[in-house]
């Protein structure tokens, strides 16, 4: 079972990272969401895999580790907040820059425009 969980996490991470490296904002956000599933699962299974033993006193003989669960619970909610914020950021970027490229607009095959700070006159 552990191997199966590891494979699932590995696939989620791979897919998340690949999307994270894309050039447009929406796939990047999808990638981040996939990655946060993976991370949540990863932290969760740090408490080891236990079936039928929820951490509710009196419900069974032994209990699963409640600490990773508490951590992940808030992580899920905050992950949602982060996704929402990034989404709105990408909307804003789209409105301000006219496109949804992560670098603020570079056509295919073109190097991204680099903001160069011009030297002030008296710096010479």
């Amino acid at each position: 079972m552990e191997a199966l969980v590891a494979v699932v996490i590995a696939v989620l991470v791979s897919c998340g990272v690949y999307l994270l490296l894309r050039a447009r904002t929406f796939p990047v956000i999808l990638g981040l969401t996939l990655l946060s599933y993976a991370v949540n699962l990863f932290i969760f299974v740090m408490g080891r895999l236990r079936a039928g033993a929820p951490a509710v006193i009196g419900s069974s003989e032994t209990y699963a580790d409640p600490i990773p669960q508490a951590l992940v619970l808030t992580a899920i909610v905050i992950g949602f907040a982060m996704t929402a914020f990034l989404l709105v950021l990408s909307l804003r970027a789209r409105a301000e820059l006219g496109n949804d490229h992560v670098d603020g607009g570079a056509a295919i095959g073109e190097k991204p425009a680099k903001p160069v700070r011009p030297l002030e006159e008296d710096e010479v």
Binding site: A3, A10, V13, C15, L21, V45
Partner: peptide, 21 residues
Amino acid sequence: DMVLAGGTGIAVGLFTLAILT
């Protein structure tokens, strides 16, 4: 990107397995 993604996934997977056992 595939190499990076695959590498990261495999690393995290192995890491998970190593911890769980």
